[in-house]
Simulated assay, not measured.
Amino acid sequence: MDAAWTPPACTRCWVSSRVTAPSTLSTRSSRPGREAAFSTETGSTRLTRSCGLSPGWPEPSALVRRRPTSPVTGMGEGAGSDASEGLDRLLTFLKRRLNGDFSVDAFGFDPELTEAVMLPALRPLYRHWFRVEVRGIENIPASGAALVVANHSGTVPVDSLMTQLAVHDEHPTHRHLRALAADLVFQLPVVSDLARKSGSTLACTEDVEKLLGSGELVGVWPEGFKGVGKLYSERYKLQRFGRGGFVSAALRSSAPIVPCSIVGAEEIYPMIANLDFLARLLRLPYVPVTPTFPWLGLLGLVPLPSKWMIEFGKPITTDGYPDGAAEDPMVIFELTDHVRDTIQNTLHRLLEERGGAFG
């Protein structure tokens, strides 16, 4: 049949083959209504196609749903809407900050800045680098005072930041964990301001009791620098839990104690040596040497991507103790030892379950 050739309705499967016939057009149907074959010959090339679609079916490309494109951004309508909403939120946030339309508590905690800036900056580490797995989040009360007591490690206290983020993001009520920090944190420029604004406060009995008395969720790492600055050969071996000041505060406030066990922090900066002489010169608790620092310079500050597990144990109640228990050295010692043993045993179990440090 000689006629002006019109491209077929379906254009999925063109194939080329070499021929030597003059330019012609032919159409044949082996199974009418089910299959048609088209061919066109031009010079020495033949394009052929076979399709199983019945006549009248729409072109396959028409069956694919496409997101409408924004005429302004060139992106999909949904993506443009999300970007617009994000920009609106950012402008509103900046306007409030410039106008001073925000509040902080007596300790300097700025919840808006924490949720809008600080926590989002930590989430890539939390979700994709350390791949934190959280267990027992239901053991943290939905409201009211409680004291979270955790092991401390990692050369740099990243574990406290990850614990704060875990509580906020995983808990149904998105509570803020008010971390207790050492004096050194509040002596460092910039770091001091950021710590205050993110909810941290000085690790002293007076501040702890005020926070618990106002119904806050407080976090303490009683090993202090002895835990965070220990050598890698001592990993996951708990150090002494101070003098039990956190237990006294919990007893006075009748706040439950929630043991928290953290696996993964020990491997982010494995400390193989401590430059004691330099630490004394700089008046620092320690100066670490790791497999990457100081050998790689600033690259040595990048933490290794260990696999993290954070487990919150069942609360240990303190409201059943008699009056004056907070001043009883034996009660404080026994309760401190109980919390420490709970965390240590949980660490051993989590290490077995995790397997490889970077798996």
Score class of each variant (00 low, 15 high):
residue 230 K to I: 00
residue 228 V to M: 08
residue 206 E to W: 09
residue 194 L to P: 10
residue 205 T to K: 11
residue 164 Q to C: 11
residue 174 H to D: 02
residue 162 M to T: 05
residue 234 E to K: 10
residue 163 T to Q: 11
residue 200 S to D: 12
residue 183 D to Q: 15
residue 172 P to E: 12
residue 187 Q to W: 13
residue 224 G to Y: 03
residue 156 V to K: 11
residue 210 K to P: 02
residue 177 L to F: 07
residue 189 P to D: 10
residue 201 T to R: 15
residue 201 T to H: 10
residue 196 R to L: 14
residue 194 L to Y: 09
residue 173 T to L: 09
residue 188 L to G: 01
residue 202 L to G: 05
residue 203 A to P: 01
residue 218 V to H: 05
residue 149 V to W: 14
residue 175 R to S: 04
residue 180 L to Q: 15
residue 144 G to R: 04
residue 168 H to S: 05
residue 233 S to G: 00
residue 152 H to D: 03
residue 151 N to I: 00
residue 180 L to H: 12
residue 189 P to C: 07
residue 172 P to D: 12
residue 143 S to C: 01
residue 157 P to L: 10
residue 213 G to C: 06
residue 153 S to R: 03
residue 219 G to H: 11
residue 220 V to R: 00
residue 220 V to I: 14
residue 173 T to Q: 14
residue 230 K to T: 10
residue 216 E to C: 08
residue 236 Y to S: 07
residue 164 Q to K: 02
residue 187 Q to R: 14
residue 201 T to Q: 15
residue 227 G to D: 03
residue 167 V to L: 02
residue 194 L to K: 04
residue 209 E to Q: 13
residue 181 A to I: 10
residue 204 C to T: 01
residue 218 V to F: 08
residue 181 A to T: 13
residue 217 L to T: 01
residue 202 L to Y: 05
residue 236 Y to T: 06
residue 146 A to F: 04
residue 187 Q to V: 02
residue 145 A to L: 02
residue 160 S to M: 15
residue 163 T to S: 13
residue 226 K to C: 10
residue 222 P to V: 03
residue 160 S to R: 02
residue 187 Q to N: 15
residue 141 P to I: 00
residue 212 L to M: 07
residue 154 G to K: 08
residue 197 K to M: 02
residue 204 C to P: 00
residue 207 D to M: 06
residue 199 G to Y: 11
residue 229 G to W: 07
residue 196 R to M: 08
residue 200 S to T: 12
residue 197 K to R: 15
residue 199 G to A: 14
residue 217 L to P: 00
residue 149 V to M: 10
residue 183 D to F: 12
residue 142 A to Q: 10
residue 194 L to M: 12
residue 189 P to R: 15
residue 225 F to E: 12
residue 156 V to H: 07
residue 166 A to R: 08
residue 159 D to M: 07
residue 181 A to C: 11
residue 214 S to T: 08
residue 210 K to G: 03
residue 188 L to C: 09
residue 198 S to M: 05
residue 213 G to P: 08
residue 223 E to P: 09
residue 165 L to V: 11
residue 219 G to Y: 05
residue 179 A to T: 12
residue 207 D to W: 09
